[in-house]
Nucleic acid binder design. Structure first.
Lengths: 401, 401
DNA sequence: CAGACTACATTTAGTGCTTATATTTATTCC
DNA sequence: GGAATAAATATAAGCACTAAATGTAGTCTG
């Protein structure tokens, strides 16, 4: 008599069932409502199997059976097919962009469609950890209220911060206290609500957002480059976001050593700096130094568009910097694309256009696309939402909504 | 009556069988001969299942049943267990390092243990494509003869070349004719013999070799840095070799733009250069300019060890370069380790030691290990052998040996 | 040296998933 | 209202696994 093993690792027939259920659910998650016949084609399973899986998934609450059997179909004859649809409202997710000066929270359904969004500006410098935490919670609560989603139906929350984040959700302190300030143990924030919660680097989330934006280029390699105050990159290699245990992937400290770049300061910061310097040198320009600290980055770019020579010089200089940053990223990783993202991205069209031409001076990579993200300031939050959806999806079959 | 789908994608019960067979085979591939009881613990399957799988695998020729049932076991009582062992000699593989000046071919068993090795020096510059191909074949044939392995029992061949190699095994021409010269359609080389053949970048293969050398750090991230004539890196991220479709991963062209580095020239080339310059400046040194083109890199390093001041200066300069290269690689990828590899690696111990200390000036990464590969000039060939083993393993269950 | 004991192999039954085939059902077209 | 159609349901059979009983090759004990 052998008691022996009874656990049946992950190789039992039940494992097959789970795999097939995942296939069906994945197909429904992104697709339209589907009949068994369509799912048979998509999954390679038989009708009996598909129908059984759908019935199960519907019982668990992931799918719902539609009544209007034939309406959407292209056929008119024969018995009307059952149609199942993904229940995008089975659960909801929260995505948060927690920046240095403001926090934005979005509530979305399981397809990543945003139902509500709330932004809170801090209004003053030096925001402490406790204040940051409560501001985030306030924004999240307001967004949930707006969306009419009760706390109990939130499946996951993801928070983006401008700092490296390790596998446990912590940011390194010691070296750079700014980082610890940006991430005051945020991973514990959702514990009291009972939500799954993930803290993630903002550039990585921007990359997630771009990854979902171009589902066609499913296994391309690209970087989402946040370029406002400091350069930071989120890397996606062959369709897989690169997430290192220490969270240091995409850190651009090496720019200190790159000729013509010299530091990781971002394009917005440099635009202000260069404009100020030009003004101090007394060069003739329409830019004024009136606002405290000189003109804003956006004003510089607008002046360049109007034909201001000094501003145009600044843009040219920034294009050179951006080109070099792109070379540093795309060269050793053989990237397909660099998406310039972040709050000032919409103003960077001119800089990016000029940078494209300068890249060839340093790197042979005619395939490389350098583009401005269409997401602008939304990138991080949208990425957070999609990350949260992924989180729910990863454990979808373990627990019914 | 429904004919419907009959193909049964990859979700049938048979798929489970394959998965479990792979589990068993993978365990045996690296491990010692094992009894069913051991395999039960390793795979989580029941005795019946394990024994059935082993019988199958033995029939196919991958495993062999050992007679001496109890000898190796730690028990003395009870019925002696069946023991199965991996048949490392079921097939053999060929790994080739095809360098600019010489070609080395190795023949190994399925565990990657080398049975024979043949090296052929070209003896003259400007080796054409046809000559290179026939030299490779000659080396391979000689190595097979040495090992006593007939051509029919070769499962796969992998060739390493100092050039980027795309997914189809081609190297880019046009820009850099050196690359096309190094890889004259080598992927077609094994076709006539009926072997599986893969052409791969040499640094990537060096990385494969290191990956197999430290099986403990199974999902670490590191770079194998070839640093002789030109810098080139093979990247392994979270245990996965990074292989881009265009083959450009690890290309170090960006070094042109890095302060204090300036080009992708490697350490050996720089050592010779710097030594020559010092001699020309008339500095007092034990180095002589007699050999045509000045002292070799190795001579410079030996002189530094002897206390020659000029040579020591060269070493310090090289350490600075190496430190910067390490920072460029390790910074944005958050690497755990950089393995300095290639033919001159054994002579670089001093340079690496000095470089370690300089890295901290540019990058906070106390976890980063920079080490000299223990493989030296063997790295590429060893990596090629292991890649070939992987190739065989990937399709192990599709065809019996 | 017989018999108990042990640790394994083998056999047999049973479960869960799948496919394959036959049958029924809902609907449209004539 | 009856054929035609396309789908759902029902039933049978196959396969891979587990579970438990049974058989077996040794060692150990008296």
């Amino acid at each position: 008599m052998e008691a022996e093993h009874t656990r049946s690792g992950q190789s039992s027939p039940q494992y097959l069932r789970r795999m097939n259920a995942r296939k069906v659910l994945d197909h429904m998650w992104h697709g339209r409502p589907a009949t068994a016949t369509e799912l048979m084609a998509a999954t390679g399973l038989t009708r009996s199997t598909v129908l059984a899986l759908c019935r199960n998934l519907a019982e668990q609450g992931w799918l719902e059976a539609l009544e209007n059997a034939r309406e959407a179909g292209t056929y008119t004859k024969g018995r009307p097919a059952l149609r199942y649809a993904f229940r995008e409202g089975a659960l909801f997710v929260v995505g948060v962009d927690s920046g240095p000066h403001r926090v934005t929270a979005g509530v979305a359904d399981l397809r990543g469609r945003e139902l509500a969004r709330v932004e809170r500006e801090f209004g003053h410098e030096e925001v402490g950890g406790q204040e940051r935490r409560s501001e985030i919670l306030a924004a999240v609560d307001a967004a949930l209220e707006d969306a009419g989603v009760p706390s109990s139906r939130v499946g996951a929350m993801v928070i983006g911060v401008p700092a490296p984040v390790d596998a446990e959700g912590r940011s390194p302190d010691g070296l750079n206290e700014f980082w610890a300030l940006m991430n005051p143990e945020l991973r514990t924030l959702a514990a009291e609500r009972g939500w799954e919660c993930l803290v993630e680097n903002d550039a990585n989330l921007a990359a997630m957002a771009e990854l979902h934006r171009y589902p066609a280029a499913r296994d391309a390699s690209f970087a989402a480059l946040l370029s406002g105050e400091r350069f930071g990159a989120g890397l996606v290699l062959r369709g897989e976001p690169l997430r290192q245990p220490r969270g240091g992937a995409g850190e651009m400290g090496l720019l200190d050593m790159v000729e013509g770049v010299g530091s990781a300061r971002g394009l917005a910061a440099r635009a202000r700096e260069l404009a100020c310097e030009a003004i101090e040198r007394g060069e003739r320009t329409s830019l004024e130094r009136r606002p405290p600290g000189g003109p804003s980055a956006k004003e510089v770019f607008e002046a360049a568009d109007r034909g201001d020579a000094v501003a145009a010089g600044v843009v040219a200089r920034l294009a050179d910097v951006l080109a070099r940053v792109c070379v540093v990223l795309a060269g050793p990783l053989d990237l397909d694309r660099i998406v310039v993202s972040g709050g000032i991205a919409p103003a960077l069209e001119g800089v990016v256009r000029a940078a494209r031409e300068r890249i060839a001076e340093h790197l042979y990579a005619p395939w490389l696309e350098v583009v401005v993200s269409e997401l602008g300031a939304d990138a991080v939050r949208v990425g957070a939402v999609h990350s949260a959806v992924e989180l729910v999806r990863a454990k979808a079959l373990d627990e019914a909504p």
